[in-house]
């Protein structure tokens, strides 16, 4: 299974490397958000009770997580395309583990968003955000990003199989990303939220991912938030992956 996953992962990697522009395309939206929201909400940092020195310091983890969501939520679209093209049939007719097909897609998507997040991080540092480039916290933060990517790519693949068409998948993808972003501390600190939103945030895995990344990459290190985020994201990724594999196995009756 490991070998099969590796071969297929390599295939997807090769394809991404041959269409680098496509991968970079996904960066445009987070970059725009980084600039516009960073400017728009700049003065929020002057409000009493704001937890960071500047709004950018607060907002960058949110943009990183946003990059993950935008990047990995479309993994299912390419699955549908591969089903249409017959590539998936070619894999299914080979004596390989069915799990490796889903796993390779999901891992590829997660690695891709991890690289995209790194690029955003560098851009953020260039425009003056206070970013910790210490190795261990950085790896920790990337781990959270990677696991969140696995989770959302799995959800996207699972929904692709259940919905079978691209249009509803796009709708679901949008529903998964934007509202969940607003129901987290990506843009607004928790003490500024109305109570009901704060309640939803407390059961939103994205919220924990944002806090986890905030705890490691930006400002002072906070291991408590990091481990909390890591555990939540790990459970989320494991559950989503199991579900996606289950949905995929359903393909043969």
């Amino acid at each position: 299974m490991v070998a099969d996953t590796w071969y297929l992962f390599n295939k997807y990697l090769k394809i991404s490397l041959r269409t680098p522009l496509w991968s970079l395309f996904n960066l445009i939206q987070p970059l725009i958000w980084l600039v516009i929201f960073g400017q728009l909400f700049r003065n929020m940092a002057q409000l009493p009770g704001f937890p960071a020195d500047s709004y950018m310091d607060f907002f960058v983890p949110g943009v990183l997580i946003m990059t993950v969501l935008f990047g990995s939520s479309w993994s299912g679209v390419s699955l549908l395309r591969e089903i249409t093209a017959g590539s998936i049939d070619k894999m299914l007719v080979a004596p390989i583990s069915r799990i490796s097909i889903v796993l390779s897609r999901v891992l590829h998507s997660a690695v891709q968003v991890m690289i995209q997040a790194l690029i955003i991080l560098i851009v953020a540092a260039l425009i003056g955000t206070d970013i910790q480039f210490d190795l261990i916290p950085l790896i920790g933060g990337l781990l959270v990003i990677f696991l969140l990517g696995v989770g959302f790519a799995s959800l996207s693949n699972g929904f692709a199989i259940i919905l079978q068409r691209e249009e509803p998948l796009v709708v679901v993808g949008n529903l998964m990303t934007l509202p969940l972003m607003f129901f987290s501390t990506a843009m607004v600190p928790e003490n500024f939220m109305p109570q009901w939103i704060s309640f939803i945030a407390s059961i939103n895995p994205i919220n924990y991912a944002v806090e986890g990344v905030r705890g490691t990459m930006i400002g002072p290190l906070d291991t408590g938030y990091f481990f909390q985020g890591l555990i939540v994201v790990f459970i989320f990724a494991a559950a989503a992956l199991t579900w996606a594999v289950h949905a995929f196995n359903g393909l043969r009756d």
């Binding site: 295939k11 590539s87 080979a94």
Partner: peptide, 21 residues
């Protein structure tokens, strides 16, 4: 449906298939 990957070369397609077997 031709299941070969258009972005890969002929050799890569063949070798991937060999690996899967």
């Amino acid at each position: 449906q031709t299941g070969v990957d258009f972005l890969l070369t002929g050799r890569e397609n063949l070798s991937l298939q060999g690996q899967l077997y």
